[in-house]
């Protein structure tokens, strides 16, 4: 691979890492600070992607959409759509232990997948939505990629700063109190259910935004674009390995895991076809095993959560 090809690949990876970092930050709000188990990340991601795609894409026959609205509207709508789906699920399930939320989110991700495949008038069915504009998409290939990388990086930075500010505020202390001792927090007059719902909805909205960034990057989306279980699971490993409860850890984990995942894909693609298929599933096995190893040997992740008042390195 020549130098230019390498630079292209690096920018491409950077954009995807940024998108995964947003997902990982969203999950950090839910799991890291609040202890909520969302096993349907891919579903919220897909809702955000389709919401923005339908609102901003060029008109096409046979499906809704083609409103050609400005990008910002699409992005806001992607967050609103993901939040609107998270709200009722959270409302029903957050009264119970997080296991129930996990089951329900697996279910909602499955339903979203069914709707996307079935309702052709809305999502274009298996053909998907095409003609999604990309900001600065009229430029040449490299400047356009770099401009998109800048947009993604800015949004990740903004999300990071906002989440970080919110977590350092009394709200963040309250959330950790609820996570670590629900009964004590409730006894102090904190509204446990309502706060959890807040965290679940905020986190899901960020996941929806990541979906929108993904669809504008690819300029199209089909139901096959994301494997629900593997996508969800990758994001879980990013957060756990990076350090749940630590926003920098969430971003670092996204970078580390995405690089390992993509490079291993490059390697398995070079294998002879007879074993390439098996190698593809062996990678999934290794991802599953990685989670077990992290949980066993370094459950706090690379960058552990910092305790308020404690020095950074214990």
């Amino acid at each position: 691979m020549d130098l230019l090809g390498l630079a292209n690949y690096a920018v491409f990876m950077g954009i995807l890492i940024g998108i995964y970092a947003l997902l990982s930050l969203g999950l950090n709000i839910q799991w890291g600070f609040t202890g909520l188990f969302n096993a349907g990340i891919a579903g919220f991601f897909a809702v955000g992607a389709y919401a923005s795609a339908i609102l901003t894409s060029l008109p096409a026959s046979g499906r809704l959409g083609g409103y050609e609205l400005p990008l910002v509207v699409g992005w806001l709508a992607s967050m609103a759509a993901a939040a609107a789906i998270a709200w009722p699920i959270g409302k029903i399930c957050l009264r119970f232990r997080s296991d129930y939320l996990a089951i329900a989110t697996i279910g909602i991700a499955e339903i979203i997948r069914l709707v996307i495949r079935t309702e052709g008038w809305l999502t274009g069915g298996v053909r998907g939505v095409t003609g999604v504009p990309r900001p600065f998409g009229d430029l040449d290939y490299m400047p356009s990629q770099l401009a998109y990388l800048a947009i993604v990086a800015t949004l990740v930075l903004v999300a990071y700063l906002l989440v970080e500010r919110q977590v350092k505020a009394p709200w963040g202390r309250m959330m950790r109190a609820i996570r670590d001792n629900e009964l004590a927090a409730a006894a102090m007059g904190k509204q446990v259910e309502a706060r959890r719902l807040q965290a679940f909805v905020f986190g899901s909205a960020l996941m929806g935004l990541a979906g929108a960034l993904f669809v504008h990057f690819n300029r199209s989306i089909t139901p096959e674009a994301i494997d629900p279980m593997i996508a969800t699971f990758l994001i879980w490993i990013m957060l756990i390995l990076g350090g749940s409860g630590n926003n920098r850890g969430a971003i670092l984990g996204a970078a580390v895991i995405w690089i390992i995942w993509s490079v291993s894909e490059l390697l398995t693609d070079r294998l002879p076809t007879e074993i390439a298929v098996q190698a593809k599933y062996a990678r999934v096995f290794i991802i599953g095993l990685t989670l077990q190893l992290v949980l066993r040997f370094r459950p706090e992740g690379i960058l552990p959560e910092r305790q308020a008042g404690a020095p950074p390195h214990r």
């Binding site: 202890g35 188990f37 096993a39 232990r97 997080s98 296991d99 996990a102 279980m229 593997i230 699971f233 879980w236 756990i240 298929v277 098996q278 599933y281 062996a282 999934v284 096995f285 991802i287 599953g288 095993l289 989670l291 077990q292 949980l295 459950p299």
Partner: peptide
Amino acid sequence: KIVTVMASLGVALMLRAVVQVVFGV
């Protein structure tokens, strides 16, 4: 307990990968 739930999700992926590698898809 929720950490065990997460581990079980990982085991689900691993068992499925074993089936896919050994018996195909």
